[in-house]
């Protein structure tokens, strides 16, 4: 340690910290550098809104993939958001702290399960179930949404718990003193007060759902078409990149990088929305 000294260590740490940020920056720049010229050359409108993806014939329209990503993500929200918020409200408001100390880490363990395991369960259990009970090929929007809905639960629950816990106790006491029941207090006072944090948790969950790749490739079926029902098979933006990356050369490769640019933009928008929601909460206090 003497070798470096106080200032030396400080510089070293700063260097490490900045290398992490610069890695992010380099990745973003690289994707944009590889993908953006293609979008401009091919025509942004044609690339984003045409529904014909056929790399061999030089047709690169990613509209079906955009629609698919939106459908699957919204479906995951329908599954994950109510479950996650309800779970967070229950754990903070209705259960002794001691129980929460056991349940919360357990839920956070869900985040540690590799996505390929989720996908495997989806293929082996969920898809056959959907096929036999609802029809269709089973590998579908519904299967993808259900699996992703569970995968984003830890994100939604832990951030929602933090923001509900941050609501000052005087709010709850005031409401209870006015004669409201515990449930009335929760849904009329506590949850509205924690609203911005809960919204941020849902947006971050959306970011995770839209970026998830492995589980979606396994359960969504990957057909390039605009889904007509939740039982149809779809291919998301992430799946498109991962499936064809291994073979792609030339313009096909550029088109996959361009798909990455679109994904990057969507996720950046979602993250800044979440950031805005969190800042709004901070400003209120």
């Amino acid at each position: 340690m003497k070798l470096l000294g106080e200032r030396g260590v400080q510089r070293l740490l700063a260097g490490i910290a900045f290398s992490a940020i610069s890695a992010l920056l380099l990745i973003a720049l690289f994707i944009i550098k590889e993908g953006l010229p293609f979008i401009i050359g091919y025509g942004p409108a044609k690339f984003l809104l045409a529904s014909d993806w056929n790399p061999q014939l030089g047709r690169f329209g990613i509209w079906p993939m955009i629609v698919a990503s939106v459908w699957v993500t919204l479906g995951a929200m329908l599954v994950g958001a109510p479950l996650g918020v309800a779970c967070a409200a229950y754990l903070t408001e209705f259960v002794p702290r001691r129980v929460m100390g056991v349940v919360k880490p357990t839920i956070e363990l869900l985040a540690g399960i590799p996505s390929v395991v989720y996908g495997f369960i989806g293929v082996m259990v969920l898809a056959p179930l959907i096929r036999s009970s609802l029809g269709g090929p089973g590998l579908s929007v519904l299967a993808g949404a259900a699996i992703l809905g569970v995968m984003i639960l830890p994100t939604i629950i832990s951030i929602s718990i933090d923001s509900i816990q941050a609501v000052p106790n005087s709010y709850r006491e005031g409401s209870l003193a006015l004669g409201a029941t515990r449930w009335q207090t929760t849904y009329m006072v506590t949850i509205p007060a924690a609203k911005s944090g809960i919204i941020a948790s849902i947006i971050l969950g959306m970011g995770r759902a839209i970026g998830e790749t492995m589980a979606v490739i396994m359960v969504a079926g990957n057909a390039v078409k605009i889904p007509g029902s939740p039982l149809d098979s779809v291919r998301t933006l992430t799946a498109n990149i991962a499936l064809e990356m291994g073979y792609a050369t030339g313009r096909h490769r550029e088109a996959l990088f361009a798909t990455g640019v679109v994904l990057l933009v969507i996720i950046m928008i979602l993250n800044s929305l979440a950031g805005m929601a969190i800042r709004k909460r901070a400003a209120k206090r």
């Binding site: 590998l139 990957n222 057909a223 390039v224 078409k225 098979s233 291919r235 991962a242 499936l243």
Partner: peptide, 15 residues
């Protein structure tokens, strides 16, 4: 366009 796409011989077999 209805075709499911799988990315290996093995996953085709499973499907």
């Amino acid at each position: 366009k209805e075709a499911l796409i799988q990315d290996s011989n093995g996953t085709i077999r499973e499907t």
